[in-house]
């Protein structure tokens, strides 16, 4: 899967905006939005929020978790836990990137948030690499991956799955008596 497609999915997440225009309710195929009134917060999907922001029609309210204090707690928990700690949003990385790139003026302490999220990401991806390593070396057939986000899975998907397939093919051809030896 392309990272941009993961981002596409993240753009469906809802975010609160404060519009500076008024508009009636919109009846989209994917659900109703609005009504929009100047100064009144309203929830919209990220794709719309970013579009309105680019047209300078709204201010984006950062999600609750996008806050230095909360992120520091999460970072600490993440480095203490051996497994993947629960994460406030399944798209935390993509949302941080998109909101900070397009609306950093609406997010207090944007730079600190960027660094913290990057740290959390690095810790988690390091854990993911470690567990992938032990998954392979112990020849496991099943792994539980709670709290892992789509973007994190995506960083290792192709490499991990292809290597597992290769190893599987090598192994099944090695084991005597397996009639699985194939023609390709």
């Amino acid at each position: 899967m392309d990272p941009s497609e993961v981002e596409f999915l993240a753009e469906k997440e809802m975010v609160t905006i404060i519009p500076n225009f008024s508009l009636d309710k919109i009846y989209l195929i994917g659900g109703d939005l609005g009504p929009f009134n100047p100064g009144l917060p309203v929830d919209v999907p990220v794709w719309l929020a970013l579009n309105l922001k680019q047209r300078q029609k709204c201010r984006i309210v950062p999600p609750d978790w996008m806050d230095v204090g909360k992120l520091e707690e999460i970072k600490e928990l993440e480095s203490k836990e051996e497994t993947f700690a629960p994460i406030p949003s399944p798209y935390y990385m993509e949302l941080t990137k998109m909101l900070l790139n397009h609306a950093s003026d609406n997010i207090p302490k944007a730079d600190e948030i960027r660094t913290l999220v990057k740290d959390i990401w690095d810790t988690r991806v390091a854990k993911l690499r470690l567990s992938a390593d032990s998954f392979i070396s112990q020849l496991e057939a099943h792994a539980k991956l709670d709290n892992l986000t789509l973007m994190e899975i995506n960083t290792t998907r192709t490499f991990l799955l292809d290597s597992l397939n290769c190893m599987y093919k090598l192994r099944t051809n090695l084991q005597p008596g397996s009639d699985k030896s194939n023609d390709y």
């Binding site: 596409f8 919109i26 195929i29 994917g30 939005l33 579009n51």
Partner: peptide, 15 residues
């Protein structure tokens, strides 16, 4: 404005 929002949604679904 409404039409442009609808168009964006249509594009996303079509994708």
């Amino acid at each position: 404005v409404k039409a442009s929002i609808h168009r964006m949604e249509i594009d996303r679904i079509r994708f």
